[in-house]
Every structure is written in structure tokens, then in C-alpha cells.
Amino acid sequence: MMQQEEIDQLLQKYHKGTCTATEIAFLESWYGQWNKDIPIALTAEELHEDLLSIKEMTTTLQPEIKHKKLKQGLLVAASLFLILSTGLYFYIHVKNKSAYNLALHDVKPGSNKAIVTLANGQKLNLNNLKGGIVIEDSELTYNDGTPVIPAQKGTEQSEPLTVSTPKGGQYQITLSDGTRVWLNAASSLKFPSTFSRLKERLVELSGEAYFEVKYDAKQPFRVKTPTQIAEDLGTAFNINSYSDESYTKTTLVEGSMQVQSLKDNQVRKPLVLKPSQQASINAAGLINISQVNTNEAIGWKNENFIFDGEDLKSAMRKISRWYNVEIVYESNANSNLILEGLVSRKSNLSEVLKWIETVGNVHFEIKERRVIVTE
């Protein structure tokens, strides 16, 4: 249940000018609710001054009224604040509890965050002000040329490196062969520091990544996950291989590639994908190929959530990873909801959740870093 201290906190934020757009919209909506039957015409400037005065009135009850035509409205505002059991309390708890809760306990979107693990086990936090790293001639630099670690002369042998992103993190990697990789949240990529003198370019993925591969027939590029090996044939593709998903999904955006199951007991030839095709592999290793909307599959890489007939629980798993929150479903939650549409991954969590609320009969509350899904 919302406490008076929370209302007080929001009014203090407004007074200091630190309210978010969502919080300001809530206050203006509340103001309009009780002001709609009072014959007072307010300009935008007067409304702003009126709201700024509410906090002072609730503590002193002796405000200095500069605009006589606002006096009646301000007294009503003070009364509403002091008797939460009536108008304001009813409005917040019955009419706008969800919107206020989401605004008050909002969570910012994920950002560039990752850790690189060197061959000797040393872990380095990558700079979150940088967009990615580049591996070239066994040297590790950021994509603006500044060093991650000082270059070690004479080091030409291949050594294993691992880049891992936490929940709420993403990072870009340019491998030594020029292949570019975008790593989504809660993911990791293990790769050699150089592909020189190796028969193949083999990398290992956990989680999700988008690849733009430099094709070389003499040195094939392969991505290994727990369920499959995907081989580039001149390709841009996305692989989703999270452990909490039922399927490993490989989506070909352009070029050509082949996919082979690692868990199917029967020896089968690799299946070749064409652009806009997706290979889904279940826990038993069975592969299904279908035509898909590639924009949906790589929406995250383009800073969007794109839902194309996706069920609520699948969408909430994506939201959980990107905003680093836990999802809790109450028994009456409408988990069968199907989502269609686009919302920016740059948005705060509250904006994404409010967008989902407009789609169907579902509501959300945020408590610390938990999102509670209810009817």
C-alpha cells in the first residue's frame, strides 16, 4: 500500500525539478482530476506554479497566494493531500496505482557493460563509456584506439579470451579476422586472440549475439553453442542460445550458412539456411526451419524490442535480462497475452511496461528490482 511518505517524495522531486516525464504526467493528471469541476482557467505557467505550491501548503497551511484566482484550487489541493483516505488516496490507489508505482520505482535501461577474461584468468571490467573492443595482432584495444591493456610485444600465439556481459549489459567485439560481434545482455563469447595458423575460426557462445562474418573458405568460421554448430558461408546472422529458453534459434539475415545439431543421436548432414530463415533446435537436438521476420530477431541489436506474435513470458524474459530485474507472476496474471509491436530499448522500464499494459489485461508493479505481473 502506498504511504504518505511516497506522495511527499514525489512532490519534493517536483519542487526540485527532478521529476521524470512520467511522474510529471501523473501529477498533472491528478491535478486535472480534482480541478475539472472548479471553474478556473489555468495557463501552463500557472499550473506549474500551482503544483510547486502544493508541497509548501501541506506543511505550513499558510501559503502566500500570488494569484487570487488560484486560491480556491490550492486550498483544495492541500486538503486532498492531508486526507489521503478520500479524494487523492482514492485516485492513487484505485485509478492510477500502477502508473504511480512504475514512475516512483523506475529502472533505467541497460548500457555498455562487460568483463574480459584473459588467458591467465585475470578479469578486466571494460569501460562502459566505450562501445566495444578490437582484437588485432594479439593486441586488445577499445574501438577508439585506446588500449585495454598495454600491448605485449612478441606475443603471436593464440590465447583464449572471453567477453561476458551481465544482465543489463551489452558490448561489441571486433575479432582478429575483422568479424564483428554484438553481444546481448547475460551472454558470453569465448574466442582465440588470433586465428593465425588455425584450421578453423571457432568461437563459443552462451546467450545471444549478432555476427557479421568475414568469409574465408580456407578457414571456415564456426559458432558453437551447447546444442549446435553454425558455420558461416558469407553471412550476417543472429544466434539466441540462452539456457532458460526452450530452443536455440539461429536466424540468417543475409548470405548463407549451415547449422548442425550436436544433440541429435542420428548423424545428419548440416542444414543450409537461406536469408530470412530461422533454425530452431530443441533440447533433444531436433531442428525445425521456418521463415521469420529478421527485424524481430535482431531488434535488440538495433536498440528495440520488437514483438511479432510473442507471448508475454517470452517478452518478459528479454525485459528481465536488459533491465536486470526479476519477474514474478501472481496467480491471476494473464500470461497468455500475445504482443505485437515495437518499443525502444532506450526507454526506462516503466515506459515499456506501460506500453504492454495498453495491449491487454495485464498490470505491473515494481518493487526494488522485481517486476510483479498481475491482472
Rank of each mutant, 00 (worst) to 15 (best):
G255C: 12
A279M: 09
A209V: 06
I298K: 02
L189R: 07
S314R: 13
K199Q: 15
K274A: 12
K318R: 15
V223F: 03
S241L: 02
L312E: 09
Q260W: 00
N240P: 10
Q278K: 14
S193Y: 05
S290V: 08
S188W: 01
L273H: 06
K224D: 05
D216Q: 10
V259W: 04
Y247W: 03
A230T: 12
V259A: 06
I281N: 05
F221N: 10
Q291H: 13
P192S: 02
I281G: 12
L273D: 01
A230H: 00
N295F: 15
I229N: 04
K274M: 08
S276Q: 08
Q260T: 11
T194A: 01
R268S: 11
T235Q: 09
E231G: 04
P192R: 06
G309Q: 04
F307M: 00
N304H: 12
D264A: 10
S314H: 12
D311A: 05
D308Y: 09
K199C: 03
D264Q: 11
E208Y: 07
Q258D: 15
Q258N: 15
A315T: 04
L205Q: 05
E204S: 13
S276N: 14
I319Y: 02
F191C: 08
T227K: 07
D232G: 09
K214R: 03
Q260I: 14
D216T: 10
N238M: 01
Q228A: 13
S196N: 11
Y242T: 04
V213M: 01
N302S: 12
N265L: 01
G234M: 03
E254I: 04
A230F: 06
M257V: 00
K214S: 02
T251Q: 03
L262P: 09
I229S: 04
A209S: 04
E212R: 07
D308A: 07
I289W: 10
D264Y: 07
W300T: 05
L252A: 00
K269A: 13
S241N: 07
T235L: 11
R201M: 03
N265M: 00
A230L: 08
Y247L: 15
S256H: 06
M316A: 07
L202T: 07
N265C: 07
K199V: 02
P275A: 01
E200F: 01
A284G: 12
Q219P: 15
L286I: 13
N288K: 13
V253T: 10
Q278L: 01
Y247V: 07
K214C: 00
Y215R: 06
F191T: 14
R197A: 06
L233H: 14
S261Y: 08
E303N: 15
E303M: 13
I239V: 11
S243R: 04
L205F: 01
T294N: 06
A315Y: 10
G255A: 04
